[in-house]
């Protein structure tokens, strides 16, 4: 029977080198891993898969988080950031979700998050907003952006 291409002729030395490389690769992973904890870990586990590390999202499917603190300028916008499915459905309790949103605001909209008028989310506030289901997140987002842009058609 013919040998498979590349399947024969490996020396014990070659296997030893391969095994050493494997061990080195396995050892390098944990040693180089960065510790992630707190709200940042929640962002990585529950948000970053779609919104990406820099918050940039994906064109036409995942909104960017850059400057998303502008929603805080109106009460419905402040509620929207909690009621949007990615927030409201996250497997986090209200205190953890409040901490996560506050961390995200500092990370992706530092100018607004450091302004004197910035008021961080609190757990009780998140509880209140989360209790009101959002039937059409896209439509609500468009409406809020029209209001924020000064378009009167955005008002209900």
């Amino acid at each position: 029977m013919a040998r498979r291409a590349g399947g024969g002729g490996r020396t014990p030395a070659a296997w030893a080198v391969a095994a050493a490389l494997l061990l080195a690769a396995a050892a390098a992973g944990p040693a180089a891993a960065e510790a992630i904890s707190g709200p940042r870990l929640d962002y990585v586990l529950h948000c970053m898969g779609c919104h990406l590390e820099d918050g940039g999202g994906a064109p036409e499917s995942v909104p960017t988080l850059e400057g998303f603190g502008r929603f805080l300028q109106i009460p419905d916008g402040r509620a929207y950031l909690v009621r949007v499915p990615g927030s409201a459905h996250a497997p986090l309790d209200d205190a953890a979700l409040a901490a996560l949103l506050n961390w995200m605001l500092v990370r992706f909209d530092p100018t607004r998050a450091r302004a004197p008028e910035f008021r961080p989310y609190e757990a009780a506030e998140v509880t209140r907003y989360r209790a009101v289901p959002l039937a059409d997140a896209d439509a609500e987002r468009r409406r809020l952006l029209r209001v924020l842009d000064g378009d009167p058609s955005g008002d209900r």
Partner: peptide, 21 residues
């Protein structure tokens, strides 16, 4: 793909949970 899903796995070498994309 830039968009993905992220979970954790336990590394048997050190028993710690690693974040995997």
């Amino acid at each position: 793909s830039p968009v993905t899903w992220i979970g954790t796995c336990r590394n048997p070498a050190d028993g710690r949970q690693y974040v995997i994309s």
